[in-house]
């Protein structure tokens, strides 16, 4: 069922929804960008539709709603412990198709990897209802069409903002009562069909080629360019790595909390082990690890699709202008070289 609802009415619906839901959407933070007088767009709770940024991609992805950068897991007092509480409300999250595809990948890691389900993710995941934001961005960092993440039917509502009104497709009957009596108008969301940036993901034919690719000099370029800041993985819609920290209260070491914090494979020290050993000691090694994970290893393990959803946030957040699409193209060339040398 389709509707066209003016913003004032949308806000009334939001008021109703907020009795049951937290509404999360990309929101503008003026002056909070990396450079002065630039803005930051990231997910936050919203009360009105006007707060939602429809016409620009958020700097940070929707994953922050389900797995916040810092999250308390449990609190301990001597031999007792108490689990942290998730929000009591359900979560209504505005996402683009690429963000929705990214949640699918996150679920694989958090809920389906190694036969283990992460309860902290699960308890958030159960609460989520998705509002699909029709995406007409086509900014030059987007490559969702190449990754096959441009289309989705995994949503409860689909919306597009037009002239101070929201066109809405109500797909999930649970939301029908909120739209009762509102102005009915047919609306079928459209999806991106072509991006400015196109990417062909190379096939790695066998393990020998993979081994040679890992040793290929192409990765050394990143020793000069990458500063190992981790901006790409924090901005990545699909990265899930975290670390845990115990915070003991100063005056009593047996009382405190355990929390988890987003971690990045790009930051030095990520692979540090007890005893002082560590892997991937150069930016090039770390870049290779990330790129192969997103465009080979994940698919090799789960057999369905690549991990990367083509949102392009890693490109727009990299302070050194490293492009993931340019990197994958270099990788394709390297693979061609390796295969050609083998066939000689």
């Amino acid at each position: 069922m389709g509707y066209k609802v003016c913003f004032d009415e949308v806000n009334q619906i939001f008021d109703e929804l907020r009795k049951e839901y937290e509404i999360w959407a990309p929101k503008r933070f003026p002056g909070k960008g990396r450079y002065s007088d630039t803005d930051l767009i990231r997910y936050d709770k919203v009360k009105t539709v006007e707060e939602i940024v429809f016409d620009e991609k958020s700097d940070f992805p929707a994953k922050e709603v389900l797995s916040p950068i810092t999250e308390p897991l449990f609190y301990f007092t001597e031999d007792e412990w108490k689990e942290s509480k998730a929000t009591s409300k359900k979560l209504l999250i505005f996402m683009r198709p690429c963000d929705i595809a990214a949640q699918q990948r996150q679920e694989k890691i958090y809920l389906g990897n190694g036969g283990f389900s992460d309860i902290y993710y699960e308890r958030m995941h159960e609460k989520v209802k998705i509002v699909m934001m029709q995406c007409d961005l086509n900014d030059d960092t987007c490559f969702c069409v190449s990754m096959g993440t441009n289309k989705t039917d995994n949503y409860s509502l689909a919306v597009v903002a037009e002239d101070g009104a929201l066109k809405v497709e109500v797909k999930d009957d649970a939301f029908a009562p909120y739209f009762e009596g509102k102005n009915a108008e047919d609306y079928v969301p459209s999806f991106p069909t072509e991006n400015i940036t196109k990417l062909t993901i190379p096939e790695i034919p066998n393990k020998e080629v993979l081994t040679k690719l890992k040793e290929h000099p192409m990765w050394q370029e990143y020793n000069k360019r990458c500063i190992s800041c981790g901006s790409c993985t924090v901005a990545c819609s699909t990265c899930t790595c975290f670390t845990t920290t115990d915070i003991a209260y100063n005056e009593n070491g047996s009382v405190g909390e355990r929390k988890r914090t987003t971690a990045s494979c790009q930051i030095e020290g990520f692979t540090d082990m007890a005893g002082g050993h560590s892997f991937r000691n150069t930016p090039g090694d770390r870049m290779r690890y990330k790129v192969l994970h997103k465009f080979h290893d994940y698919k090799e393990r789960f057999k369905d699709y690549h991990m990367c959803v083509g949102c392009g946030r890693c490109i727009s957040r990299c302070p050194e202008f490293i492009s993931i699409t340019a990197t994958v193209n270099k990788m394709s060339k390297a693979i061609e070289e390796i295969v050609a040398a083998e066939n000689k």
Partner: peptide
């Protein structure tokens, strides 16, 4: 702020 990968530091 410039160095921060997450926007924890802002002006």
């Amino acid at each position: 702020v410039i160095a921060c990968p997450t926007g924890a530091w802002t002006r």
